[in-house]
Design a protein around this nucleic acid. Structure first.
Lengths: 179, 179, 179, 179
DNA sequence: CATGAATGAGGTTTCATTCAT
DNA sequence: AATGAATGAAACCTCATTCAT
């Protein structure tokens, strides 16, 4: 990819994450990325378009490690790996994940990426529900929804205080409870 | 309170929750509240001031039901009541709570209410840690942090889909796991 | 009407007429009108909206003197008066009329005011056709279309060189030919 | 001429005619012409330069058929041919002629081509005046100015609605009146 | 000849805020 | 207490033009 395009994207992720989408201006992004304001519009049709692009980047990465062999079935090992991997990714790409939670908690912004999000969460929820059903859970759908809520909650808190958050200990609790 | 002031506040909460703080304009609030733009500045010094005021309103309500007898000790019954009560409040004041999660996931906005937030979460975390220590948890601090993360995660998901979320079932799981 | 609103409109007419709609910026208008850029948007939703408003102003004036007793019939005297009046108006409100021809010769701009224009020209053409039919013209519709074309052509040239254009002599020719 | 240059010119004429000079961007032209933006600047120094070039193209064609034997005298047959020819050209090169009226009705744009326009209309007006003088008109100059106004008016209307305009019938009227 | 990345000035529009009434 | 006209900074975006390739 064009290096300047990449610079724009990286800078946008960082600023969106720290300041929020609507509180980040194109000027800020251009300044910090060291390019002209106009250049952004050579690569993206609008600020919203940039957000969509960024969201897709991360969504792809997220799915990559969920059911990696793509057989539609989540094994115990795959599940554990996925849990570990998500928190690893959060630590590595903190900005992207802050932005992600940003988006999810703001209906007005969620709408911008609504269709993409559906494509992503739909299949995931299904596989999770199947997993919990096979495991013998009484109400597998409720368990799946509880699980993703826990993941989101922990993820959010982890991101907000990576240094002090007892993430190892919490991951162990999650695996013990859900896997 | 003056009815117009109240109208402004309620409208602001609703709009902030739906559209985000920075994506909501004073004009929008004034229009929807049926008052003039200028009036807002009779009651609040600025848009940020309005946000702080709103945040405080909810923070007070939140603390009210945590350790209601204010003895610094959380009993099992108080804990259960608190968990139930939080989700009840979320269902009743959805807008306020959406806004709350909005704020927490946006560092730039969190800063606006940072001092108020500290006053609120500090004591709560301490009492929770004490509770888990008394219960015999190995790492009571980690457990406390895990607990609030779960509460936030579930709260968020509940707010985003109140109608379909299996909240009763999930509350039971939480109580079973943490109390 | 608010004096500043009026100032904005008058200035806009003058600048649109001289420089064209797309070649006139809101900044220019605001500067020359001695108001802030933002104020325009208190009165008009957009630049296009301002143009529509201006167009309507003139369209109303134009119709006012066509068939003044609104009986749907054009008498010989009314017709003569109308012809004289149009050129009088052009001399008085040169800017508005320059703008009018501007609009008509630019399809992209005509579209902005298309519906308003239709309301205006439809009935006029009908009455003119009736007039020429009563007069015994062979092809009254063609005569009507010829007449308005002549009016537009002469109007345009008159506006472009008011001082030297032999308008009295030309009006006489027009009346002799068409009335 | 280089085919790409020609494509640029044709596309520019079409877009200028439909959208107006200032409302047409170089990008639009380049896109629709299927060339790069940069290429335009190999052939033309600027957007204005392109307009001048286009205007000249048409002006040349216009003069070609006015007094074709270039003897400075307009015969009756030449005059009739000229009238017929102009409307024929309009039907053939609609875009160019729309653009022409566009230019004439916008002082700011007229200035761009002002010198070229003078070279063109000056001699034409003189010959026309001579023609009407020879014909015995009382005020030959007024007649000439009336004539060109009629031609412009009819031309404009014809271009705006070629399909329905009763152009044959109107041409007959014009010839009857002026030749 | 031809491209398209890159620029930066300037376009339209929004918006928090002030202030005379 | 309440209005809304007015401001001006800053938002998003467009565009003519340049230039390395």
């Amino acid at each position: 990819m064009k290096p300047k395009k990449e610079k724009i994207i990286d800078t946008a992720i960082a600023l969106f994450a720290d300041n929020g989408f609507h509180n980040t201006s194109i000027s800020q992004i251009a300044n910090k990325a060291g390019v002209s304001k106009g250049l952004m519009y050579n690569y993206f049709e609008s600020k919203e378009d940039l957000l969509k692009y960024i969201f897709d980047l991360g969504a792809a990465k997220l799915l990559e490690n969920f059911d990696p062999n793509r057989d539609g079935v989540l094994t115990k090992e795959e599940f554990i790996f996925y849990i570990e991997d998500i928190f690893y990714q959060m630590q590595k790409d903190r900005n992207y994940w802050m932005l992600f939670f940003n988006i999810v908690t703001q209906p007005a912004i969620t709408q911008i990426v609504a269709d993409r999000m559906m494509e992503m969460v739909g299949p995931m929820m299904k596989e999770l529900t199947d997993y919990f059903r096979n495991k013998g859970c009484e109400d597998p759908e409720a368990e799946a929804r509880y699980f993703v809520a826990v993941m989101d909650g922990v993820g959010m808190h982890y991101l907000l205080d990576q240094e002090n958050y007892p993430i190892r200990s919490v991951i162990k609790k999650i695996i013990k409870e859900f896997v």
